[in-house]
Design a protein around this nucleic acid. Sequence first.
DNA 1: AATATTTTTAAACAAATGATTAAATTGTTT
DNA 2: AAACAATTTAATCATTTGTTTAAAAATATT
Lengths: 209, 209
Amino acid sequence: MAKKVQKPTDASTEEKIREAARKLFTQKGYASVTTREIAEEAGINLALLNYYFRSKEKLFLQIMEESMQQFIQGVVVLFNDENTSMDEKIDKLVSNYIDMLISYPDLPLFILSELRSNSNKLAMKLDSQIGLARSTFIRQIQEAMRAGKIPEVHIMHIIANMMAMMVFPFVASPLLKKIGHVNDKQFMELMQERKKLVPVWIKAMLKAR
Amino acid sequence: MAKKVQKPTDASTEEKIREAARKLFTQKGYASVTTREIAEEAGINLALLNYYFRSKEKLFLQIMEESMQQFIQGVVVLFNDENTSMDEKIDKLVSNYIDMLISYPDLPLFILSELRSNSNKLAMKLDSQIGLARSTFIRQIQEAMRAGKIPEVHIMHIIANMMAMMVFPFVASPLLKKIGHVNDKQFMELMQERKKLVPVWIKAMLKAR
DNA sequence: AATATTTTTAAACAAATGATTAAATTGTTT
DNA sequence: AAACAATTTAATCATTTGTTTAAAAATATT
């Protein structure tokens, strides 16, 4: 009979496993990571993984839930700020979000990859994001459209374009480094630059017709 | 001793395997696909996979090479057209490339995912793309920058932005469908729309300051 | 200190997986 | 038709992989 963890004890073993799993899953994806790899990376006995998390999949789902939350958490808050204009939101959002991506550059490709193979299992976790379409920010854009300040297009285009400008470089970094002849350091400097450039580009796009 | 295929015979068996492998690898990634799955999808005996391709990895590398070529093939040709202006190239490129992506929507996420986990093995295959940075199109952009028609930014930003606007929606389709409340059919219609919208947005971005 | 509980360990299990073998079948050449 | 080569098949092999077990060690409770 499976034992329950009644005391978090040091929390250290459980957390060591979680951290090792997060690192490896994020780098290589669920299917490419073995439980033995995780155990070794965490410096613990293999059986402890199942003792604390029951199965590789349960462990993965925990990691995935945290990762998806991190992926959208910052967005949701900023999207619903009632006290800032549309343009101010764009500035803040892009800067904060690119900062997050610089800290966790492998996060988006991990999430998008797993979302493809496991869309069924992870469908529920997406529900939290449905609200985005009715956020203050989206309403501000739609109002600007009705007022004729911005050409009318399907809101999905806007969301796609904004995400694309922020996220895509991190998803395609190996490709972009090769094509653009930039090394890792230069790449990160360019990502820093984008914190100021992307808002300019997005605003220009929004008004373009 | 491994036998060599001396006659392509019907080419049908070999091609059936290749097609099944392409489909499955593209959908689920290298690590999630088993040789038995490929054999079943192809409707052939398991041993034939090794008879024709020696190993799962050799088969994968063949598929990957073809996929990467398809991913950039259209771009290279258009990028080097001497007889079109920068703006004309943008129109053609976007329209053709999005058409390709509509036909093979899983291609980009597949390539970008495998490029992450296997960057070492696939590094060589990327060399063919290095030339992109010295194409006619890139030179036209750089001339427009020197002429002051376009603000000066690192060329990687331009490449990243253009790729992002074309590719990202296909990489993030499950997410965008959820957030934007669009079904598969509507999504494809929106992608068709983008063939005309993205060039407008890109041109606006290029000039933005 | 004695006892119970929780955590850790080494070993093993069963299933899955990539690959191979040897025989059978099909096709080609002479 | 006979002989040879190429292709296909079923069975098997050796590892790998996720998971479990039972005992030992560490920690907490009485």
